[in-house]
Design a protein around this nucleic acid. Structure first.
Lengths: 334, 334
DNA sequence: TTGAAAGCGCTAACAC
DNA sequence: GTGTTAGCGCTTTCAA
């Protein structure tokens, strides 16, 4: 259907090598350049990347495997990433594995069959077993948001400093005299959950506060989970004086639950939330929160992957981005 | 690096054709099947889809070009779509053109260079000029969410019945006696904006109400836009008694503005919103709204595309899905 | 600077 | 059922 280099060769009388060189930025005689360009527009020639991929053994495609596509935390990252990758002529093949390890594993094989040059993965399976085939294939792997300890030095990663982010938030509360501080976390087996818990514990211990399991809830990173966690925490005696919620959806759920219980913020309870400056801004303008730089995560990921792609020998790196504590008016001294 | 059919041939002593047949579901002698499977696992063979694509002239990839990746209305559609396409072994290559027609045009060419078998597009350029190269290439094109009138019969589409959705919402208000009904729309040049305006006008005229331009605002489909539109509409004299907001983000913005102005719903104003049952549910549980079936849009799109892909001659179809009016408590008789 | 020719890994005649 | 072979559209030696 589409025209090929052969068609161009016939049209211009030139050889394949000359044409190929022209399209790959080599220098050709001026009069041939003109000849080629005329033929290109006459025949509507466009290079066939599939053939090119087969020959060069580079698909100029990267596979992106994520746990959820309809989550703006993830898609803002992907969006920034895709932008940079496509600028370098890399195609982004996405696969949403719905937080299902089995699908995730299939997705890896799917990507390998298509011979992607690299793999970017926000992992669902915390063991990283699904990545073994990609490691065998020898393509660069980049994790985002979540590390996998058993894969250190074999993959790169872009994450935020979860321990420090959480510690900073909780220290802010302890510094103001709070000692009964509630914590709402995601699923226990997630990397980010564990780090954010560690940061919380660090902060408490740093202030000589004995951690109390009854102040901690696991809310699955969903709005519903945040809502229920708050309802459950409100039963506690002695009451909490402060609360730290560790992702966007749960913060939303928690705020709604608090609002409906008639809890005043910060008079009755100091609250620090997580993520999405731009969305919370209009909805809860006074909320103090930890903000993750999604754009930077996406850009760093793309840059790191592009670097691994063009320097096949390059050592793997872990890039840790820091978060920002955005001060609102939802926290007050005890 | 990776092993090839040739390697398998050497290992098993079989010919290429036999191996190829085996991998494409043909029948081979039982003892050869065993032989092949042993060799496959020994050599870690995985078929090279790039080579296959070149040979068959089918990439088994579809390009998805959208105006925004960090928008859950869009990504819930893509998510459902990608799921079905990957099940049929189609790769989904995404490109976020940031609502920029120039990028959108580049994205089309990018996809064509990669020889995608089909293109799915939520169009930014309402003229459809960017799709011309894809039409020339003869690959199936599927529009989602927005039609392009000049391309009728040359592309397929999956849309919701915007006129009917809007008309239904506004008729509900007129039936209850409302005559001063505010309308908040997206950008004037968008297909959906025009349809939703048409539905509004139909409903008013059906009740003998003279439309009044001063009741209509264009809010760019953003939360900020919805917020400002409400502030502007609140100045009107005589006052509105009802309001219809035509997408998710603007509904959110409008509700916040109303809440902050101390307007009681439905006592002071009847309100009907748009989209996202599941998110509004927890936030504004009593809101009456028009709900678009995103999952169905995604599934229908995938099914339609798969059909076009396997029946190259198939005629283009426009699939119109209907919306659902979810009754809350934000509307009352005048 | 240019052209001829080989080959990337696969599929699909075709002959056996 | 199986093997041989040509060729998809490109890049890349190598020689001119």
């Amino acid at each position: 259907m589409a025209s090929t280099l052969k068609d161009l060769a016939r049209e211009t009388g030139l050889g394949l090598a000359t044409l190929s060189k022209y399209f790959n930025g080599g220098s050709v005689r001026e009069k041939n350049r003109v000849l080629i360009e005329a033929a290109v527009s006459k025949l509507h020639y466009t290079p066939n990347e599939v053939a090119r991929s087969l020959k060069t053994q580079h698909s100029r495609a990267v596979g992106v495997i994520i746990p959820e596509l309809s989550n703006t935390f993830i898609t803002s990252i992907i969006s920034a990433m895709e932008d940079l990758l496509r600028q370098q002529n890399y195609a982004v093949i996405v696969s949403d594995c719905r937080s299902d390890p089995a699908r995730e594993k299939e997705a890896v094989q799917f990507m390998l069959n298509r011979r992607v040059d690299g793999l970017i993965n926000m992992p669902t399976d915390p063991t990283g077993a699904h990545l073994q085939p990609a490691l065998n294939a020898g393509i660069p792997i980049l994790l985002i948001d979540r590390l996998i300890s058993s894969l250190m030095n074999r993959v790169s990663a872009v994450v935020i400093d979860n321990v420090q982010a959480s510690e900073q938030a909780v220290r802010k509360l302890t510094a103001l005299g709070h000692r009964r501080i509630g914590l709402i976390l995601g699923s226990p087996n997630l990397y980010t959950t564990q780090c954010r818990l560690a940061g919380y514990l660090n902060a408490l211990l740093g202030s000589g506060i004995e951690p109390d399991d009854s102040c901690i809830r696991y809310g699955d990173y969903t709005m519903e989970g945040g809502y229920q966690a708050v309802q459950s925490l409100l039963q506690l005696e002695p009451r909490l004086t402060a609360l730290f919620v560790t992702n966007f959806e749960m913060t939303l759920g928690a705020m709604l639950a608090l609002q409906r219980s008639g809890i005043r913020i910060p008079e009755d309870l100091s609250v620090i939330g997580f993520d999405k400056l731009e969305l919370f801004g209009p909805i809860f303008p006074d909320l103090t929160l930890i903000h993750q730089p999604q754009q930077s995560i996406g850009r760093e990921s793309a840059a790191l992957m592009l670097n691994l792609l063009s320097n096949p020998g390059a050592a793997h790196r872990i890039v840790t981005l820091s978060t920002e504590l955005s001060e609102g008016r939802s926290v007050r001294p005890l």
